[in-house]
């Protein structure tokens, strides 16, 4: 069973994105999915996913929106980030060379989340993690 406990959409600007990011982190804390100690790595994953959606999915076009939802799926919390772009294959994102300037966001998400995949039908990045107790 999946229960969405947070949903927001915002125009593709970083200013709007940071507001939603703060709201989402607050919701995860309130619902007990993370504790304060775990906030940095969860915030990091959310930011990476949202920046990708704004920048690569929607080309920074403020007329396009990004949708973020958080769902309680029993043992796991699933974060879904949906943009209006063409999508990408998470598994084909290569680990960057040390001196490469970008391309590390997905690697970081893969490290901190238990599951990461891109649902091409829904044009949606999904990532899940288990409840983080103290």
């Amino acid at each position: 069973m999946s229960t969405v406990f947070f949903h927001e959409e915002f125009p593709s600007t970083f200013e709007a994105m940071t507001v939603t990011l703060d709201h989402a982190v607050a919701a995860l804390l309130r619902e007990g999915w993370i504790q304060k100690d775990h906030e940095p790595c969860t915030r990091l994953c959310l930011e990476e996913a949202l920046v990708n959606a704004v920048r690569h999915g929607n080309d920074n076009d403020a007329n396009r929106t990004v949708k973020l939802s958080l769902a309680d799926e029993g043992e796991c919390c699933t974060i879904r980030v949906r943009d209006e772009g063409g999508g990408f294959c998470v598994d084909q994102v290569a680990f960057p060379e040390t001196e490469q300037m970008g391309g590390r966001g997905i690697c970081l998400i893969r490290h901190f989340m238990e599951r990461v995949e891109f649902d091409t039908n829904a044009n949606c990045l999904e990532m899940s993690f288990r409840r983080k107790a103290c």
Partner: peptide, 13 residues
């Protein structure tokens, strides 16, 4: 508290 991949890119610069 945390830094994103975008900050890493800036640190490389």
């Amino acid at each position: 508290d945390y830094l994103s991949s975008a900050v890493l890119t800036e640190l490389l610069r």
